[in-house]
C-alpha cells in the first residue's frame, strides 16, 4: 500500500497554546486511521450493508439516521440516507468490506487517502465546534457514537461524537490544513494542547 502523507505534517506542532495558564480546555490531534471507507446501499439494501459492516469489522451499527458506534480502534456511523462511514486504525478494511458487500447490496469506496481525521476532545470541545458548525452538539441531540454531515463555509465535514467530550471530524484532505489553521484560531480563547 502506498505510504500516506498527512496534509497536516508541515503545520501540526505538538505543544500547549492559547490561554493555557487557565487550564487546558481542548486537545487537538490527528488520528490518521489506516482505513476510512464509505459504503452506499442500493435502495432497500441498508440492512444488508449494516450486516456486511458487522461481518467485516464486528461493529454493530444501530439503525436510524446518523446512528453510529465507536471503540478505541474503530468506528462506524451513518452520514446520509443509506450511506455509512467506517474507520479503522488498521489498514486494509476496504478490501474486507468489498468482500463482504455483494454487488447487488451496494458500493464500497476507499477514502483512506482522501480524508483527514482530526480529533477534538476536552471540556471545551463542544464549545469550540459550536463556533464552526451550526448544529446542536448537546448530548441529547448528538449522542455518543452518532454521526453528522455538515459544513463550515465551503469545508464539508463529517463529525462523529466518539465519546462524551470527544469528536472526530473528517474533512477532505485538500481542506485539512486550512481547517486546521481555522480550528486553532477558534481554540485560542481557551487553553489547548496539540498532541
Amino acid at each position: 500500500m502506498a505510504e500516506r502523507l498527512s496534509p497536516l505534517e508541515p503545520v501540526l506542532r505538538q505543544g500547549s497554546y492559547g490561554q493555557f495558564e487557565n487550564g487546558v480546555g481542548i486537545i487537538l490531534s490527528e488520528t490518521a486511521p489506516g482505513s476510512i471507507v464509505q459504503l452506499a446501499a442500493w435502495p432497500g439494501q441498508e440492512k444488508a450493508i449494516i450486516a456486511a459492516i458487522k461481518k467485516a469489522t464486528g461493529l454493530a451499527l444501530p439503525d436510524g439516521a446518523g446512528g453510529g458506534v465507536a471503540s478505541s480502534t474503530k468506528a462506524a456511523f451513518g452520514f446520509a440516507p443509506a450511506k455509512f462511514m467506517v474507520v479503522d486504525e488498521a489498514e486494509g478494511v476496504a478490501e474486507a468490506l468489498a468482500k463482504a458487500v455483494a454487488p447487488e447490496g451496494g458500493t464500497v469506496t476507499d477514502l483512506s487517502h482522501g480524508r483527514t481525521a482530526i480529533r477534538i476532545s476536552g471540556p471545551k470541545a463542544e464549545w469550540v465546534l459550536a463556533k464552526f458548525f451550526a448544529i446542536d452538539f448537546s448530548l441529547v441531540a448528538f449522542p455518543v457514537g452518532a454521526g453528522r454531515s455538515t459544513m463550515h463555509h465551503d469545508i464539508f465535514a463529517q463529525i462523529q461524537r466518539s465519546a462524551a467530550d470527544q469528536y472526530d471530524v473528517y474533512v477532505f484532505r485538500s481542506f485539512a490544513r486550512s481547517f486546521w489553521h481555522t480550528l486553532r484560531r477558534g481554540c485560542e480563547e481557551v487553553g489547548y494542547e496539540v498532541r
Partner: peptide, 12 residues
C-alpha cells in the same frame, strides 16, 4: 431535513 434534522438554510 428528514435525515439530518433542522439545519440552517446556508447548508441547502
Amino acid at each position: 431535513c428528514p435525515y439530518c434534522g433542522p439545519r440552517d438554510v446556508s447548508e441547502f
